[in-house]
């Protein structure tokens, strides 16, 4: 049996559908590390962490930021149920940079009452957002 050429990807967040389309490959940040999914992948269920999604379709690659959620692979279909997800082109770089500075400040503080875990997560989110946004700038679609 020949494997299909493309797989249908859907990225949904609680308030909207962020992406829907047929893609050649997608790499997602699962909780245990990045995971690549190609057409014909076996059914899979995993949790999402914080990171970048890269979507390869045709001869271009698109990037996306996502944090927390679930990933389900069904025959011919990938569904990402993300807590937050943004296309790289929609990311507010200025806001992410501000968030990064804020989180770094919190991590550097010596106050024992600081929510270090929260600050660390905020920092991860900010960095992933910036990475996704910058990748798009570095590698424009041909």
């Amino acid at each position: 049996m020949a494997l299909p050429d493309t797989i249908h990807l859907e990225v949904v967040t609680p308030d909207r559908q962020v992406f829907s389309g047929d893609v050649d490959a997608v790499v997602v940040p699962a909780r245990q590390g990045y995971m690549g999914i190609l057409p014909g992948h076996a059914p899979l269920l995993a949790e999402l962490g914080i990171g970048e999604i890269s979507i390869r379709a045709g001869d271009g690659t698109d990037y996306m930021f996502c944090s927390w959620g679930f990933l389900e692979v069904l025959p011919g279909r990938v569904v990402l149920l993300a807590q937050t997800a943004e296309m790289a082109s929609d990311i507010d770089v200025k806001r992410a940079e501000e968030a990064k500075v804020r989180a770094e400040k919190m991590l550097a503080s010596t106050d024992p009452g600081t929510d270090f875990r929260g600050a660390e997560l905020a920092l991860m989110q900010a960095i992933s957002r910036l990475n996704a946004a910058h990748r798009l700038v570095r590698k424009p679609r041909p």
């Binding site: 609680p14 308030d15 699962a30 909780r31 245990q32 995971m35 076996a42 059914p43 899979l44 269920l45 995993a46 949790e47 959620g69 679930f70 990933l71 069904l74 025959p75 149920l81 807590q83």
Partner: peptide
């Protein structure tokens, strides 16, 4: 009927999904 690959134990994924489900219902 589908045989899934689980990145993590299904019980754990299920347990994490349920609160999200409640949030989605309220929303």
């Amino acid at each position: 009927r589908l045989e899934y690959i689980y990145d993590e134990p299904p019980e754990r994924i299920f347990a994490r999904l349920l609160p999200r489900h409640v949030e989605a219902q309220v929303f």
